[in-house]
Design a protein around this nucleic acid. Structure first.
Lengths: 334, 334
DNA sequence: CTGAAAGCGCTAACAT
DNA sequence: ATGTTAGCGCTTTCAG
């Protein structure tokens, strides 16, 4: 099964040239002049023998591995999944591979993971989290270019790629305003989360720019679940001033809000319009009517992270790179 | 920034021994007798210099990379995500790394991906798909141990890891029977899919074993969406013989069925019990009441795949390894 | 018990 | 224009 792989040596012998000639030909080095006749002979030998370069040996000699390490807290979450996929695609485009390790939130594994990655001589490191938060990196991260995705580091020494939550909140609210709404309520997340503060800021800016007064009774905080959304929406709907539109800071809460609206004998979107946040496909696309929501740009963040590492983006600066959150229009706004 | 990494040579010099001694000490080789005093000196030098082994060089010398390639059609799907994560965890436990590439369903990339993976000298290959199906593998897959996850290969030459769909259908139906139901309808997927046939087979076996006659009017096929489930359920509910329980062959259809049930003025689970399939967390956990469903064991399939490759499981046979689909009880059955 | 030396597969500076 | 040679960092056989 494991019959020895054919090496450049074999090709050299077969084509009657030296190893270096083979190397030059196979690497298509045009700065070295080798007659086309010889090149053809070498290539033919390589083909016939079924030669496959050994990237590890190349890496060892060139001292460049084309490997990027990606450590994440929970790889199986759809969130991290998006980042991984985006990073993976971008890496592929650049001819690089990703070495992924999921720490399952165990900080001890963070360090072990980093160590293993460094032993494999990764040329860059992406540290991605499921939720937008502040993290502390093991100091070994300093030994290689590192970029954070969907999180920021305490010390502020590392570049990050973040969703532009403020713009997302703005876009959602703006969309509602453009649909003619004036009484727009916000069902926010716990404001300890950076995402909550920023989404609210965007909401406020949109209202302000449209010269709609911000009514604090229209801003509630719910537990980040369908149930939380249900209760928050019910409270709002029972209040004196019934909103005509709801901006929910996540899709799960929007899902609960749908139920509260139905229960109040109202209809989405005719009586109450709803915009969510997160674009959790399975919720958003299958709710009836389908939920208009703001997407977190995971794929693009993943891609941006590897591009920052490969310095496709010029800056190695540490001010976070903000990736826009696009609005996904479906059927819940009228 | 890239000050040359310290090598064994440096340690040898520093500890006043030869490179091979360093190698033996650091690899904790007890078959070579080296006085503890020397060992300590070497270890101390390694620590002081901040030595970090170069796994690539080790691999080159040992001809073993501890790398497993994983190619999948759509890495970002929650399905493939589970497989990737399970495989990742298992690989980590075995001290191996996964090299993941997502082909986005492009067959041309399948082959390119395989080639790149082989150039990196992966020691095994996992080919995972999002949906349970039959695939054709590029012939290069034959050059290295390969196992399929969630799919089977045309030729039947490769081992596979599959969910035990029949047992899943059986378990779901059995659960309904144990809750006292007799009139249990099935809303199935298009029976061209292997999953549909097997789930139905499990359904039939459960009824048969409970000596409940299978009524073909109770078996319908819906489009695999919330809408499909909605319509199928409505048809069933409008029929003469109204079922007291619905087994939906996926959660999306169950979601639609919920709506049909509500619209008919009935309640889940008091009037109609519902069991889904797939355990799409976001649907199942947040539906109200939460959906009892059968989970596809993605993580375990991923883990099993790498274990098969590492021959943790003895057999290198080609009869598929069936991983059980567990029932996840929530609130939709009474 | 330790060290010298060959080799893993490849790159690249230097000769020829 | 082609070949020789010295690495890259490590493992392992074989002498000493």
């Amino acid at each position: 099964m494991v019959r020895r792989q054919v090496s450049m040596q074999d090709i050299a012998r077969n084509a009657g040239v030296s190893r270096s000639t083979v190397s030059f030909v196979l690497n298509e080095r045009t700065d070295i002049s080798i007659p086309e006749e010889t090149r053809a002979r070498v290539r033919e030998a390589a083909r016939q023998l079924g030669y496959r370069p050994n990237v590890m040996a190349q890496s060892l000699a060139k001292e460049s591995t084309n490997l990027i390490g990606l450590v994440t807290d929970i790889a199986s979450s759809p969130f991290a999944g998006g980042i991984i996929n985006g990073a993976q695609q971008a890496a592929w485009r650049l001819g690089k591979f990703l070495l992924i390790v999921s720490t399952e939130g165990d900080p001890a594994r963070d360090e072990a993971a980093l160590e293993m990655l460094l032993e494999r001589r990764v040329e860059g490191l992406i540290y991605a989290t499921q939720a937008h938060k502040v993290v502390a990196l093991p100091s070994a991260a300093r030994e290689v270019p590192t970029v954070l995705a969907h999180c920021v580091e305490e010390s502020g020494e590392f570049p990050s790629v973040l969703p532009d939550e403020e713009q997302g909140g703005f876009t959602a609210t703006r969309h509602l305003i453009e649909a003619g709404h004036q009484r727009i309520a916000l069902i926010n997340l716990d404001t300890a989360m950076p995402a909550a503060r920023l989404r609210e800021a965007g909401y406020r800016r949109a209202l302000r720019e449209a010269r709609i007064e911000v009514d604090d009774r229209m801003i509630t905080v719910g537990h980040a679940t369908a149930n939380g959304g249900f209760h928050a929406a019910r409270t709002l709907l029972d209040g004196g001033e019934v909103p005509t539109a709801l901006f929910c800071a996540n899709d799960r809460m929007a899902m609960g809000a749908y139920d509260a609206i139905k229960e109040a004998g109202l209809h989405v979107p005719d009586d109450v319009s709803v915009v969510g946040f997160d674009n959790q496909e399975i919720i958003a696309a299958y709710l009836r009517p389908a939920l208009t929501t703001v997407a977190l740009p995971f794929e693009r963040m993943g891609a941006a992270a590897v591009e920052v590492l490969s310095s496709v983006h010029g800056s190695a600066g540490c001010t976070p790179l903000l990736v826009p959150c696009p609005l996904v229009k479906r059927g819940s706004v009228a």
